[in-house]
């Protein structure tokens, strides 16, 4: 457990990659970047348990795999349960002298569908039981793998193939599930939100998540050019704008109680208007084309501002 996290570029280049090139993720997808940043934080023996999703199907098309570290997938809604079994099995086999490592970092990964929705019960169970697992959600805001359907993580106003923008509909009408806060409410040791644009913040937080004893949760925003209908070269820019607009603020929660705003969010004097985030994405185009949705757009902005103010209060930021 001695390997340092690679935070400086020089160290990052020297650290072993956990995901090889040649995987079949879409051009511009942020998920492989997120996995590689996660890899920069690793400290020793590690096993990944993954939920069904884009990342899973596109990195492990048999007989190939892009994963250089041990990896298991069983189904969509159960990554947390699988991880619970893996971590406890290692522990007990070590106690019985049948497994050499005293500790293995067990990481569960799911997309937003596998985390906010179908895998939520399994996640909550794992958190309540207190298994020493880091769960990371890469949140691309919809069921992108099956063709861009709405999830509990889809933003209001977002058009998906199950929340169409139409003559009488502005896309998804409901708000996004506040997953990080729901997870934090389980009073687990560590919760953090991250953006792949802020790599240093990402790696440091992931390392903290590995270091705490008990469950930890990382919520990563993961731009998806295919679903968001954005340019493939703009993903990191959107990951930055998600933070600046307050759509994906960066913060940590310790033991479910102590909220701490992270640097990139703390430095924000005034939120960037959500238009700046929405306009480069085709999935919000209707909100600007059809004047009847102007009110709804304002409503979304109000929601984001309210959430931001509330978060600042929780973090003790003026």
């Amino acid at each position: 457990m001695t390997e340092e996290a690679a935070v400086r570029i020089k160290d990052m280049l020297e650290k072993d990659e956990i995901l090889s090139s040649g995987h079949r993720m879409c051009a511009g997808c942020a998920a492989p970047t997120i996995v590689k940043l996660m890899g920069m934080a690793l400290r020793g023996p590690t096993v990944v348990c993954e939920a069904t999703g884009c990342l899973e199907v596109a990195t492990t098309i048999y007989p190939y795999t892009a994963w250089k570290i041990p990896w298991i997938h069983v189904a969509f809604e159960n990554a947390s349960a699988v991880a619970s079994g893996v971590v406890e099995a290692y522990k007990v086999m070590h106690q019985k002298g049948r497994f050499e490592h005293e500790h293995v970092d067990v990481i569960a990964i799911g997309g937003d569908g596998g985390t906010f929705d179908i895998g939520f019960g399994s996640l909550s169970g794992m958190l309540e039981r207190g298994h020493d697992v880091v769960y990371m959600v890469y949140d691309n805001g919809a069921y992108q793998n099956t063709g861009i359907q709405r999830s509990g993580a889809t933003l209001p106003g977002q058009e998906t193939t199950t929340s169409w923008a139409g003559k009488v509909s502005p896309g998804k009408e409901q708000r996004k599930k506040p997953i990080a806060e729901i997870v934090a409410a389980h009073k687990i040791p560590y919760v953090a939100t991250v953006s792949p644009y802020h790599r240093r913040d990402f790696i440091q937080k992931f390392r903290k998540a590995l270091e705490v004893e008990g469950p930890a949760f990382i919520h990563a925003i993961s731009p998806c050019p295919r679903g968001w209908r954005s340019e493939t070269g703009k993903s990191m820019e959107l990951a930055k704008l998600a933070v600046e607009t307050g759509i994906h603020p960066l913060y940590e929660v310790f033991d479910g109680e102590e909220y701490k705003m992270s640097g990139p969010s703390k430095r924000i004097k005034e939120l960037t208007p959500i238009e700046d985030y929405m306009k480069p994405q085709g999935q919000f185009r209707h909100l600007f084309k059809d004047p009847q949705w102007e009110g709804f757009r304002e409503q979304i902005q109000t929601w984001i501002k309210e959430d931001w103010e509330l978060l600042k209060k929780k973090c003790g930021v003026e």
Partner: peptide, 15 residues
């Protein structure tokens, strides 16, 4: 659902 899932995870390790 999680019972069988945790069993699969544990069994995968050789337990």
């Amino acid at each position: 659902h999680s019972a069988m899932s945790a069993c699969v995870g544990a069994s995968a390790t050789g337990a």
